[in-house]
Design a binder for these strands. Structure first.
Length: 278
DNA sequence: TTCCAGGGATATA
DNA sequence: TATATCCATGGA
């Protein structure tokens, strides 16, 4: 894969291990939309880009190419990761089905708020709540809105979160906005995956699964293995009969590639029987 | 009508 | 430490 940065974006060729749809649609981000012409608009924090596939090339238009170069992890060798994981027989099918998935490097604060909303919820509804939250108090961009900053969210009451459709997570969000200070975030970013997980568990509304997602998608630590209902369905067994046991077993098994393995498995479990492979 | 969704907080033993 | 119950909401 070759990438060329210019003033107005990035051009990628030979992106066998970069499928826009697979990468955006596997539940790690909720702020994107697919246009009728097949292009995508992606938001992250206060940034926005537009993406389009044309022939063998993939073009990302944005006023901040450096941000999205990092966001899509374009310096990482996903072919190498893929080779290591698909060599494990139990992962082969899931890898092939999710060949174009990349783990995004997203904003930590946005991930904390977003994944608190995600708990016991479904993706379409999560997207709606986040969209309304951004429209309510995020800065307007030339296309859509920025994700709200902490100080913007400090202006919301519990019932404001309720009105946005957050359900019983309203009070979790209200509390989390007050717990996750700039100092909290700064310290969080210096920690290992395991220590960061522990620190995140002190935030109201953040349990083991949500903490794992924040560590994986928001802190860029790939030795993390979120276990949700889909993962339980895919990996549960007589012995591994709780989320905690599944988490511990597979985190150890896949080590530094656990997060990517998890995405392959999650994608495979969710899309199986729907013919959405490459 | 009931079940389910990228679960977590709380009470109880 | 481990398990049971409750929690808003909307689509299937």
């Amino acid at each position: 894969m070759t990438t060329k940065k210019d003033e107005n974006g990035i051009t990628i060729t030979g992106g066998e291990y970069f499928d826009i749809g697979q990468t955006l649609d596997c539940g790690q981000t909720f702020r994107f939309r697919r246009e009728e012409d097949g292009s995508y608009v992606v938001h992250s924090a206060d940034k926005v880009c537009r993406m389009r596939e044309s022939g063998d090339a993939l073009r990302i238009d944005t006023s901040d190419p450096d941000y999205f170069y990092r966001y899509f992890a374009l310096d990482e060798d996903y072919g190498g990761y893929f080779a290591r994981l698909s060599a494990m027989s139990e992962l082969k099918d899931a890898c092939e089905a999710g060949r174009g998935i990349r783990l995004l490097r997203q904003d930590a604060f946005e991930m904390i708020i977003s994944f608190i909303i995600s708990a016991n919820n479904n993706i379409p509804r999560i997207k709606g709540i986040i969209e309304r939250l951004c429209a309510r108090c995020g800065a307007p961009l030339d296309d859509g809105y920025a994700f709200p900053t902490r100080s913007e969210l400090l202006g919301l009451t519990v019932s404001d979160f309720t009105a946005l459709g957050a359900g019983y997570r309203d009070s979790y969000l209200y509390s989390a906005v007050r717990t996750v200070t700039d100092e909290f975030l700064e310290e969080l970013k210096t920690l290992s995956a395991q220590s960061a997980r522990k620190m995140l568990l002190t935030v109201k509304g953040v349990g083991p699964k949500v903490a794992d997602c924040i560590v994986l998608f928001g802190l860029g630590k790939r030795d993390s293995f979120p276990v949700d209902t889909w993962m339980k369905k895919a990996l549960g067994s007589e012995e591994l009969n709780t989320a905690g046991k599944i988490h511990d077993f597979y985190l150890r098994r896949y080590g530094s590639l656990a997060g990517l393995a998890q995405q392959y498995i999650y994608n495979y479990a969710r899309t199986r029987g729907q013919g959405s492979g490459s």
